[in-house]
């Protein structure tokens, strides 16, 4: 049965990604330490300088740590998405992407499965982070922890698709530094992850404009509202649309006749 084939392939791809992640313990620790440093050091330092007024979804005054937690969840997924795109470039050079591509399944499905696998891993990281944050005193409502799951699925898919897109167009991501400088840092800093939009508007009009249309902002807002049991419809639609666009372009990039593989894979 065809449907079983798809299901088995999907679960095979996901479990491979999870095993890889669990075996590479340094990666797991690094993935957790990064947002924790931001939470424990950066946010704690800024607590006194940044006052956050009551804005939805928050109903009381909040500490800065509480404000940046959703942004840090987004950061985990952003890093993860870029890292898996990097591993895809590396994979392709190592040939294991080719192994995936010769599987008798449509390419769009294979790329989507790869994306689901990456997102799954990023959600494991996100919940590990939320667990530690909980012990530190950042305790969103319990049902929020449940609602944040679908939000993380969509934001993870969107950021993963962006990574996939980059991996199909960029010939060689020689090191992570390039991606950090040109993708991760701009996306992260020019977003609502660290400061709310109205606060950005006070200081810089263009930054406000960029942050507003940055898909990462919308992913973070989606997560932020979900964490408090609320749905931000605008963020949902925006993130969903960004996912569809990135994914279609990525599939195009991996298409054997139209894509960029041709220009790259010589020799």
């Amino acid at each position: 049965m065809r449907i079983f084939h798809y299901w088995r392939a999907l679960s095979g791809i996901v479990s491979r990604e999870v095993w890889r992640f669990l075996y590479q313990r340094e990666r797991f620790i690094a993935a957790l330490v990064r947002p924790l440093v931001w939470l424990f050091v950066f946010a704690a330092g800024f607590r006194s300088t940044l006052g956050i007024a009551i804005t939805p979804p928050y109903e009381t005054y909040i500490l800065y740590e509480v404000y940046i937690t959703p942004g840090l969840l987004g950061m985990i997924q952003l890093f993860n998405g870029m890292q898996s795109s990097l591993s895809m470039v590396y994979d392709r050079e190592m040939g294991s992407m080719r192994i995936l591509m010769v599987a008798p399944l449509p390419r769009g499905f294979l790329l989507m499965a790869k994306l689901v696998a990456g997102t799954f891993v990023s959600i494991l990281q996100a919940y590990a982070f939320l667990g530690i944050a909980w012990l530190y005193g950042i305790q969103p409502p319990l049902d929020g922890l449940l609602w944040v799951f679908p939000a993380l699925v969509l934001s993870g898919m969107m950021l993963g698709a962006l990574g996939l897109l980059l991996s199909s167009f960029i010939k060689q991501l020689e090191n992570f530094a390039g991606v950090m400088n040109f993708v991760i840092f701009p996306m992260f800093f020019m977003s609502t992850a660290l400061y709310p939009l109205w606060k950005i508007k006070e200081s810089s009009e263009w930054l406000y404009w960029v942050a507003q249309y940055n898909p990462f902002s919308q992913a973070v807002e989606l997560i932020r509202f979900a964490l408090y049991g609320q749905l931000n419809q605008y963020a949902l639609v925006y993130t969903g649309a960004a996912f569809v666009i990135f994914m279609l372009l990525a599939i195009l990039g991996y298409n054997p006749s139209k894509g960029m593989m041709m220009r790259k894979g010589r020799g």
Binding site: I13, R20, P104
Partner: peptide, 16 residues
Amino acid sequence: DLTVLQNLRYHAALHG
């Protein structure tokens, strides 16, 4: 990083 068996099971899954 994976075992021989895990590598082969992955391939088998891709082939349904």
